[in-house]
């Protein structure tokens, strides 16, 4: 059996397992852009239409970042949990190496991630088509969707490496990392060294960091 039929079989299995989750993630992704537009309008009615559209960018960046991180983690963790629940007997029964199996899982996860991405693209397209742009303001839906896709793939890859590399310890590692970060912040506050947190932030989004993909401006509208 070559790789493609196995990939197809795994994809079908994961789709059946996660159909409700994926449907929800897709709907939420589709709502991100309209929700950002509505929220920006609700927050400050005194802004002119151009400024209000520019304010949408910040909201959209927050919504889409949260959504894509949640989607990537959810797709990885749920697939792994399903395998772990049956003590990986399904994976062990397949006549392939475990490493190859993991790559097939990554491929199916990324494929299913296309659905939330499509939802996001639809939401962005609806907002772009529905908004009367003031002169001198342009919409960049394709660029934004590309940025979303790249950030999603990177987040998925990192989450996948952590989960499939560390197994059940992954959650403990993630919690430990969060704990270390929180304690650093607390100690920085106690030791009156408030510059530590910005320094950590700068390292995390430095040009060589995988998270630098989040550092760029996420904007749907601009001059």
């Amino acid at each position: 059996m070559t790789a493609f039929p196995r990939y197809r079989a795994l994809l079908r299995q994961q789709l059946i397992l996660q159909r409700v989750d994926i449907a929800l993630l897709t709907i939420l992704a589709a709502l991100a852009a309209p929700a950002a537009l509505i929220t920006a309008r609700a927050f400050d009615t005194s802004l002119g239409s151009a400024e209000r559209l520019l304010a949408t960018n910040a909201m959209l960046a927050a919504f889409s970042t949260l959504h894509l991180v949640a989607s990537a983690i959810f797709l990885v963790v749920r697939a792994y949990s399903a395998d772990a629940a049956v003590r990986h007997t399904y994976a062990a029964s397949l006549p392939i190496e475990r490493g190859r199996y993991a790559l097939l899982r990554a491929a199916t996860g990324l494929t299913l991630g296309l659905l939330p991405l499509a939802g996001f693209a639809i939401g962005v397209a609806v907002v772009t088509a529905g908004v009367a742009l003031p002169p001198a303001l342009y919409a960049y839906p394709v660029a934004l969707v590309c940025r979303y896709a790249l950030a999603f793939v990177v987040t998925f890859a990192l989450a996948f490496a952590l989960q499939y590399g560390a197994g059940r310890r992954a959650s403990r590692i993630a919690v430990t990392m969060i704990l270390v970060l929180t304690l650093t912040v607390v100690f920085a506050e106690i030791a009156e060294q408030p510059n530590i947190l910005p320094s950590i932030g700068r390292v995390l989004v430095s040009p060589w960091s995988p998270l630098s993909v989040f550092a760029a401006e996420w904007k749907l509208f601009d001059v």
Binding site: R87, G99, A102, L103, F160, A161, G165
Partner: peptide
């Protein structure tokens, strides 16, 4: 990330 996963035995 993918190389790291494929090269090692999957953790249980």
């Amino acid at each position: 990330a993918m190389l790291a996963v494929s090269r090692r035995r999957i953790a249980p």
